[in-house]
Design a protein around this nucleic acid. Sequence first.
DNA 1: ACAAAAGTGTTCACACTACACCCATGG
DNA 2: CCATGGGTGTAGTGTGAACACTTTTGT
Lengths: 230, 230
Amino acid sequence: MPAGFYPHDAKFLVAVDCIIFGFKNQELSILLTRRPVEPNKGEWSLMGGFMDENESLDKAAEKVLFRYTRQKGIYMEQVGAYGEVERDPGDRVVSVAYYALVRLEEFDTTLASAFDAKWVNIHQLPRLVFDHNRMVDDALQLLRFKVSLQPIIFEFFEGKFTLPSLQDLWEAIYQMPVDKRNFRKKIAAMGILDRLEIKDKSSSKRGAFYYTFNRQKYDEFIASGNRFSL
Amino acid sequence: MPAGFYPHDAKFLVAVDCIIFGFKNQELSILLTRRPVEPNKGEWSLMGGFMDENESLDKAAEKVLFRYTRQKGIYMEQVGAYGEVERDPGDRVVSVAYYALVRLEEFDTTLASAFDAKWVNIHQLPRLVFDHNRMVDDALQLLRFKVSLQPIIFEFFEGKFTLPSLQDLWEAIYQMPVDKRNFRKKIAAMGILDRLEIKDKSSSKRGAFYYTFNRQKYDEFIASGNRFSL
DNA sequence: ACAAAAGTGTTCACACTACACCCATGG
DNA sequence: CCATGGGTGTAGTGTGAACACTTTTGT
């Protein structure tokens, strides 16, 4: 811990709030909870927590994520810092928002009830406490930007996925339909996926092939001067 | 000031560091200073300051900007929060970075010496204290993104500018040459500039026409479903 | 045999790139 | 009159958008 060099005396609580995105029932959802403490107890809120003395912002966010999802190695990225004076009526708190992408397939549903938490479709978001709605808007904008330029969309799946489901996810993120052939053409052109020999028959008689993201192929693709783009 | 609802006791100094961009001598520069206090006194640093109890993050950044530039209404945007435990050896400090675009033409050069400050070309940046180099990298990346999608490049000028200088600025930001005709075509296609009847003769015998950004035309351009793109 | 979702190619429009010459003026 | 930077148009190419039918298989 660094020594106190500065005479400045204004110190602040620093919180971390997480926008946890998941893909479920063809829709993009985020994990919300009923706020367990006053003020605004019982209202809908993002998952959050305070940063401790001996941890970094990123570590604090990872802690929050693990606490509510029990998943490790979650993809996570900072959205920004929110520092309005009156943003939290409970105290002067500076909050740093992070968004995260989780694999809903392996999500432990008993956790949700334990924390009074719920997956809510991004179209049916209730009013959230403080400035959390703004955080969600900012996170969604950043998510769209990142998805279009980096191969993070695959983080929503546990390893394998089908092209129809990938496209459904893409459409849920951008809230716009895409032509199936154009979408698949773009994916195929990059050559960064491997097709497995097995099919997912849960949503059609014919079945859709599973694919996996091949990081090595991706690295080679990038190394040869190409740019990922979705 | 909100009441203290939370029993949490970990409080932190919150600083704001500003990456102040200016355009000078065909090059993009940022304003640096010799750090006036220990630790690392005398080393190169961004312009910064601590946030006070009764001000927001944005206000704290505006305060820093005004202190070092004496300009009001500066374009400014948050880059992100930096919260590594050991990032500042002087104390545990969470710092929030902002970048800003200033009009160097109206810059009071006496200020620079008063604060031991200096405009430094982004290619010749020295090693800065703490994680300031990383902040600059992040700010530059964000700047490039924003410039390509929003008409903020005009913030570098006090009202009028010539197309050659605008192109020089663009090239300085992206570090790549652009074809003159293509660049002007793109600008002209949007129809968001007004050509003045006067010329800048400081860099050629013939003189280059001055232009101004016309916000009303810009709003109409956007309202008709078009997208700004540079 | 039929319903329901998976899979597959081609054409067209537009945006981006490359490229070279004349113009205006001060010295 | 010439050196210097300002200003202009066109053709080609590649990328993104539109579009419809066949395949598979469980019921």
